[in-house]
Design a protein around this nucleic acid. Sequence first.
DNA 1: GCGACTTTGTTCCTGCGTTCACAAGCGGCT
DNA 2: AGCCGCTTGTGAACGCAGGAACAAAGTCGC
Lengths: 220, 220
Amino acid sequence: MIQPRPRTIPEATVARLAVYLRVLTALADGGRSTVASGELAAAAGVNPAGLRKDLSHLGPCGVRGVGYEVRTLRDRISRVLGVERSRACVLVGIGNLGSALADYAGFGSRGFEFVGLFDAAPARVGQRIGGHTVRAMDELEDVVAATQASIGVITTPAEVAQPVCDRLAAAGVRSILNFAPVTLAAPPGVDVRKVDLSVELQVLAFLGQQRQVLPVEEPA
Amino acid sequence: MIQPRPRTIPEATVARLAVYLRVLTALADGGRSTVASGELAAAAGVNPAGLRKDLSHLGPCGVRGVGYEVRTLRDRISRVLGVERSRACVLVGIGNLGSALADYAGFGSRGFEFVGLFDAAPARVGQRIGGHTVRAMDELEDVVAATQASIGVITTPAEVAQPVCDRLAAAGVRSILNFAPVTLAAPPGVDVRKVDLSVELQVLAFLGQQRQVLPVEEPA
DNA sequence: GCGACTTTGTTCCTGCGTTCACAAGCGGCT
DNA sequence: AGCCGCTTGTGAACGCAGGAACAAAGTCGC
């Protein structure tokens, strides 16, 4: 009875909860009131039993024989994921990818707000992208301190990603999303999550090539 | 002796092999001749034992007491991942993200070549991005057939991602990388891999929030 | 030539994630 | 009111990935 709901939610489950949240939001906007695990799982592309187990980490939130109430479940997941309050993010490296992220509407609607865009190239400083003005790197520490930004996104070239990471961590950023194709080292207490687009493509290519060798994987 | 090297390589291992390949390429460019598993693992951010296990899927390729020959290992991984021959890719949806990907130099150096950029907006058709010209959606099937493109990348809005996926699959594309925030359904024989930037940010935010509740996780 | 050191490749084991299957509970119908 | 069908939530088993420890093997120094 000390911890009826253990605080630890598996990372894989958290990732899927974010997907469920998007589907539920779409259902709610469509006027849907309840949904069963089977339908929700199909829309999210997962196994129904796994979905129920994921949701069980939030405590009982469904009605047997009926399903889940769409808006209630949506709000519950929002609260657990912490989407309720907006989170301040800074973005370093306003190249093509950085500009795309700064201008991506999907972040704002999920509680992420960019409070600072930074680039080392003087030519880029002053440009307006996605409603914000690109600032010089000098201002990085001040903006992080003033806005209490807890999340940093790195879209710089690989060569400067590590020093940028160091500066972000030193300035007080606790979570970093890295798009540069290097493995970053961060001090303890700072989470680094990496997204490597080339790796995704290479895995995809390998699976396709492998499937070409083993024509079909479903006998009988 | 039927299969001294079982054809199946775990997907997680494939993803790491791509990372090793990048590190090895950098080492080779730096003139390095051999490298030990410990150093390579540190550069890739993984456990040395795990790295050796990953490499064991390729058969013995190191020298005990010395380490791995950089160029030999690089070439071996390249061959396994199929980076040797260039792969034709088409990209649908030339918005901010699509433009960034089309212009990203990291793909070309890893054996991926965009042979067609497509967008539904007439205003975008004809623009030149990353050395290619944006084409109208009408030409999609013809280009896929002519270039034998096996990989498709979707960076369209969520609403049109599914029909685009259907058209790509029907045209003969076997592997699809989806950046739209929806779960795509594809016919059997077509692999779909999803990259959801919002989900990455939400997982990062949740981990940060969770760490705030449980201050430290390392006693003693 | 021989011993000792270094590093690989493998094996065992632990823990996690996923899936299947079933009991419990709730609404609707008669 | 009682029964039936539907759906949730959970317990158990399976498979897989990750980590540590150990034996084999090759090189360097003497």
